[in-house]
Write a protein that binds this DNA or RNA. Structure first.
Length: 214
DNA sequence: ATCCCGAGGG
DNA sequence: CCCTCTGGAT
């Protein structure tokens, strides 16, 4: 896909949110970081349901660390992987207290050094909470990128670099999140709904879906 | 019954 | 590269 078309594609996807009620609502560094860690293999709705009580009990890394894994667990039993996540979140809070004076660092290196934080989580926090020009490439964006030909045959990291390069700066913040929602609710893994995709003018995947190669 | 918004570990 | 974690959605 030529650069100009790629930009138009990204712009189209960033214009409309296909599922407003499913967004993670947090934007401050700590709650966002914890919410993102909890969201792996869970829906935003499930995370949004259980986190208010958790953050009421532990609004800061200090409180969360004091709570510990056993204290966090009861709040998140409704989401998948809750045992591992309770340990992760407690260890994460502990590390923030011990190594960063209870503040979420705004640099990639420091974020990725935290337990349970990888490149994708770091990119979300850097983008949403710190306003940096990053793009979090998860399986949804990766799949969408492959289907529409944004970066065919490329690694997730290459897709990320391509998106950062091609996404208009004024859209970086919204585009990365809305790309995820499009990937999840429209450009779905199983039954993609090309008919309602706002970027269908820039993508021919619907042809491949309807007439798969023999 | 089967897949899944990721990270750590073998 | 593979596996595991685990509830929820389909």
């Amino acid at each position: 896909m030529p650069p100009a078309q790629a930009e138009a594609f990204i712009r189209a996807l960033a214009v409309a949110n296909p599922a407003p009620e499913t967004e993670l609502t947090y934007s401050d560094p700590f709650t966002l970081l914890v919410a993102v860690v909890l969201s792996a293999q869970a829906t935003d709705a499930a995370v949004n349901r259980c986190t208010p009580a958790l953050f009421a009990a532990a609004p800061t890394p200090e409180k969360m660390a004091a709570l510990g894994a056993d204290g966090v667990a009861p709040y998140i039993r409704t989401i998948g992987l809750w045992q591992a996540k309770a340990r992760n979140v407690a260890a994460l809070a502990q590390a923030l207290v011990e190594k960063h004076a209870g503040e979420v660092p705004g640099e990639r290196e420091a974020l990725e050094a935290l337990p349970g934080v990888g490149r994708k989580t770091a990119n979300v926090v850097l983008n949403v909470a710190f306003g940096q020009h990053t793009m979090a490439v998860d399986t949804h964006i990766f799949r969408l990128g492959n289907r529409c030909g944004l970066a065919p045959g490329k690694t997730p990291r290459e897709v990320e670099d391509m998106l950062v390069k091609r996404c208009p700066p004024d859209l970086l913040r919204d585009a990365h999140h809305w790309l995820i929602l499009h990937g999840r609710y429209v450009c779905k893994a199983r039954a993609p709904e090309c008919w309602r995709c706002v970027a269908r003018a820039h993508c021919n995947y619907r042809d491949k879906v309807l007439a798969p190669p023999v």
